[in-house]
Every structure is written in C-alpha cells, then in structure tokens.
C-alpha cells in the first residue's frame, strides 16, 4: 500500500518535471537549473530513442548488452545537450533535446554497432577507440593498450620533437590517474568483467589477441571517420617523407593510433632505425 503510494508520488513528480521541461526557459542559468532536476528523465528518454533507432534498423536484441549500449549512447547525447543546449535559450528544453537526438540519429552511422562489440572484449575495445576520438589522452593511450608501449616508445615510433614529447608524458599520466577508470565506468565494464579479460589475456594470449585484432579493426574503421578529413592511409614512401621532413605531426599521431595497417607500413621510420626490429603486433593491454 505504502509502496504504491510512493510510486504514484514518483509518477506525479515525473509528470511535473516533464511539463516544466516543456515550458520556455529564458536564460542559460534557468536552463541549467531545470535540466539538472530532470537528468534521469532525459537519460531514459535518450536511451529510449536509441533503442527505437536500433529496433527500426534491425540492430536490436532483448538483452542486457543492448540495453547498456542504448544507455551509453543516451548519456553521450545528454552530455552534449547539457553543454550546447544552454546556448539555445530561450527554448523549450524537451523539444530541443528531442531534436538534438533526432539529428544524431539522422547521421549516416551514428554509432559503431556490431554484435561482437557488445561482449566484454568488444565493449572494451569500442569504448577505448570511441574515447580516443574525443580525448587525446585516450588516443595516446591506444598505443599502450594496442602494443604495450610506454611514453618513450610512442615518441620514438611517431618521431616526435621535444615539445610534443612533453605532452605525451602528460597524456600518459592523466590516463593512468583518471582517464582509464572514467572510460571503464562510461562503458560500464564491471571489475569482474575486467578481471576476466585480464585472465583471458594471460591464459590464452594468442586467441585473445587475434580476437582483439579482429574487433579493433571494426572499431578503428568506424572511428577513423572522425579523423580530420584528409588523413587517409599512406604508402611507406609517403610516410617516410613525412617522418624525414618532420611535418604532419598530428597526422602521424592520429592515424597511426587508429590504423593497425599503417602502423605496420610506417614501422621503423620514426626512431631512425633504433627500434626497427620486428613489426609490432597487437598485444592488447587491459590495464593502463
């Protein structure tokens, strides 16, 4: 009896919050205030839209993996709404939110969907590469997670100069301190799932890495589209020219982190031959 009473209270609260979201807000501060009270509603709404999108495109399955996927993207949209929506005042927040999500879903491939990317290893890789697109720390950390390299190796392999090197060390430090954990939280990988991944890595190294290579190629192919527009794959001689003449620093860092093939192609160009041993193979690291 008390339970149903509480439930009806919650429903009444929700209705009030939703109708407040439908009213016009005049200032950015008002926007922040109204939206901050409605985060759960907005998150569920965005997840619901994503779910519908997946259903309509034949990519849905009734399981927890798909639910988590919808939640993850829902929260991405919500984050963007929180930051960008406040510049849209005066507006009706709910309608703005709906149109923002609809806009995302009208893009050609709004997210990287592949059934194998919904399992723990796939989620780990998808989350890592997706994060690399918006975070330079994560981008640099991809070198570590893919090949087990430290900051010094990254600097040598990509042939960076002194100024850029300092930045790489910082990227590594921040990733270890907080970036990795935040990313794991965002993808919703539990401690147990992470421990299991680590376990597989140690016990079935080869199988683990070849599966990881297959999946990371799917993710890299998708997220490379977020690279600045004209960063295509290059031939060995083209990479060589870029390295020897010292330009395209950003190109090297971005593309080589997000392309296993070009890493093989450009191998040994950066470190002036010092580490030009065997070409690097994927050696997936779970921990930062």
């Amino acid at each position: 009896m008390q339970n149903t009473l509480r439930k009806s209270h919650i429903i009444a609260d929700r209705t009030a919050t939703v109708s407040r979201l439908e009213e016009v807000v005049a200032t950015s501060d008002e926007f922040d205030q109204v939206v901050a009270q409605a985060l759960p509603i907005l998150l569920d709404r965005a997840a619901g839209y994503t779910k519908r999108f997946l259903r309509e495109t034949g990519q849905w399955n009734d399981d927890i993996e798909h639910e988590k996927f919808a939640l993850r993207w829902g929260s991405e949209y919500l984050e963007r709404f929180l930051v960008c929506g406040r510049t849209e005042v005066p507006c009706r927040p709910l309608f703005l939110f709906d149109s923002l999500v609809a806009k995302q879903h009208s893009r050609p491939e709004p997210f990287c969907y592949h059934p194998d990317l919904l399992k723990p290893l796939g989620r780990f890789l998808d989350g890592l590469v997706a994060r690399a697109v918006v975070s330079r720390d994560a981008l640099i950390a991809l070198y570590h997670h893919s090949y087990g390299w430290g900051a010094g190796d990254v600097i040598a392999v990509t042939g960076l100069n002194g100024l850029e090197s300092q930045r790489i060390y910082k990227n590594f430090r921040r990733w270890r301190e907080s970036g990795w954990q935040r990313t794991m939280d965002e993808i919703g990988l539990t401690k147990m799932e992470l421990a299991e991944l680590e376990n597989q890595r140690q016990r079935h190294r080869q199988r683990f890495n070849s599966e990881a290579e297959r999946l990371i190629r799917v993710a890299q192919g998708h997220y490379r589209k977020s690279e600045p527009d004209h960063y295509p794959c290059l031939s060995r001689s083209q990479w060589g020219e870029m390295f020897s003449q010292g330009y395209g620093c950003d190109y090297r860092i971005w593309h080589l982190a997000l392309c296993l093939d070009c890493m093989q192609t450009a191998w040994g160009l950066g470190s002036s031959g010092s580490s030009a041993g065997e070409k690097p193979r994927l050696e997936l690291q779970v921990r930062p």
């Binding site: 930051v83 960008c84 510049t87 918006v134 330079r136």
Partner: peptide, 27 residues
C-alpha cells in the same frame, strides 16, 4: 556547421554551441 564543441585533453566537454541553419551565432 551544426555543432561546435570544446574539449580538454582528457575528453571532458567544456562547452560549445549549436549553430543556426544560416547566419551568425556567438558564444
């Protein structure tokens, strides 16, 4: 241009704006 976003090195969204269909917008 549809959206503009500013982010830190660790990926945090600092701010941005939604651009109008045509014309100017500043933030």
């Amino acid at each position: 241009i549809e959206t503009v976003q500013l982010r830190t090195e660790d990926g945090r969204l600092l701010g941005g704006l939604v651009a109008p269909e045509s014309g100017f917008r500043t933030n």
